[in-house]
Nucleic acid binder design. Structure first.
Length: 125
RNA sequence: AAUGCAAGCCGUCUUAUCGCCCAACCUGUAUAAGGUUUGGGAGGAAAGUCCGGGCAACAUAGAGCAUCGUACUUCCUAACAGGAAGGGGCCGACAGCAACGUUAGCCACAGAUAGUGCCACAGAAAAUAAACUACCAGGCUCGACUUGUCGAGACGGGAAAAGGUGAAAAGGCGGGGUAAGAGCCCACCGCUCCAAGGGUGACUGCGGGGGCAUGGCAAACCUUACGAGUUGAAAGGCCAAAUAGGCUCCGAUUUGCGAACGGCUCGUUCCAUUCAGCUUCGAUUUAUCGGGGCAGAGUAUCGGGGCGGGUAGGUUGAUUGAUCCUGAUGGUGACGUCAGGACUAGAUAAAUGAUAAGAACCCUGACUUGUCAGGAGGACAGAACCCGGCUUACAGGCUUGCAUUACUU
RNA sequence: GGGCCUGUAGCUUAAUUGAAUAAAGCAUCUGACUACGGAUCAGAAGAUUCAGGGUUUGAAUCCCUGCAGGCUCA
């Protein structure tokens, strides 16, 4: 396992097929200000969570605002991802709020999201 | 000094902890994996996409037509609808008796005698001028009386001077002239034509003529001149997993899961079809396509190997360029030339961040007048192949010019 | 990344070949009718035609710049 707080390229979700699969088969839940999609992976053995962060262009017209929110979510995820790193998951975090939330709010809410995912994974296994 | 306007420039910095992207170096067989390593990492608009190029693929004899765009001149430039200088116009200011002049700002500023079209309402009339009121002379009819005058009426004429309408009424003003009038004639001004001389040119106009003809709109159609092939990095090039299908080699088996015949676990013939070869005819884009003929090798199923096309994906395009900095030099200027130096983001579901502390900036208070204490904030905005412009957004700061006010000399 | 279209009363649409009071329906308000309300009838108010500039005597309409929204190619 790598460093605890790193966020390398392998941990990001990319590629049309993976995303298509996640959005068609994955299960989702809403937790303000996020909408989260998750899909556990059977094909690969190594424990790795791949995550995708998305902010809609419809809600935030300026690229600066979208970048700011994505950076805050990424930072919050990076600091707290230790909670779920024993699972093998595809994950999409979609920001659905209409306003820009400060970093502390995003961090606290994302903690709740990760707790929920952890509970869900424990039930399944 | 303060305020306002215009133009130009800048548009936060430092440290700590945890991270992101690229490159180099090191460990390592390695392009895997890693590192208490080193260096670099958004803008003046990266934005809007309003223009112009580079670059790439495809197309392309030449000319014309159509379509779209541009529009004072000369220059700058790779190019432009951009910029510089100049010309002309509009509208202010200054100065002056006035003319001449100086100057801020603005102008899509070719052509209205090439043609077509439009100019509502109002007004008599809105573009081949025209007679409503008022004006003028004429003959006719009627009335009055002072019997040749006055008044009224209709008639066909003259006349663009006056009234009023309108955005605009067919040169202005003064004088002469006339029945009344009229550029009908004259002076001045304006307009227009020719034109010495000046200027690369737009243009200017010494001087002379015309007597006024030619209203406005081309961001109405249009005409003239000039320009434009189409598409756009998701273009284009290269490598290429798995699965399916194509070709081919080897092995096994029940050999075109077509037909007929025979001696029937096979053979022959016919027919169909695939591939490469030769030949002939036709077509054109001239090395390809289509048709016919000849002779040849094949044709199913399963397994394995190889080949080519191509999908996911990767890589290239793609960061050395109309580049930047400094100096010299030519030019009124935009800009050019020469010399020296620098390498300065390269992501791709898309890096340049989060947290904390401090500095400088701004405001308030205190007094030692440059220190202390407290407080609020940091705009507009994120590269996506690359450049040149234009336009729009912008907290705060600096410089220059102009205007106003106050103070000093 | 490229291309195209739209913006008019609170809402939905007219007027877009320039012509002066920008038209209509629904909604709103007032009055009539009714015991009250609805429906119906009569009337009123409501628009700087997205913003700014230009052409023109005159602009919702023509031209330029910006803003907002939508569609489309791949």
């Amino acid at each position: 396992m790598g460093k605890q707080f790193s966020f390398k390229k392998e941990e990001r979700l990319a590629g049309e097929k993976h995303i298509q699969e996640l959005f068609e088969k994955g299960s989702s839940f809403n937790l303000y200000p996020f909408r989260v999609l998750r899909l556990s992976r059977q094909d690969s053995n190594n424990q790795l969570v791949k995550v995708l962060i998305s902010v809609s262009k419809r809600n935030f017209k300026r690229a600066v605002d979208r970048n700011l929110i994505k950076r805050r979510i990424r930072e919050a995820y990076r600091l707290q991802k230790g909670h779920i790193n024993e699972y093998s998951l595809l994950l999409a975090i979609v920001y659905t709020a209409k306003e820009i939330e400060p970093f502390r709010v995003i961090k606290d809410k994302l903690f709740l999201v990760l707790e929920k995912i952890k509970k869900f994974g424990a039930l399944k296994s």
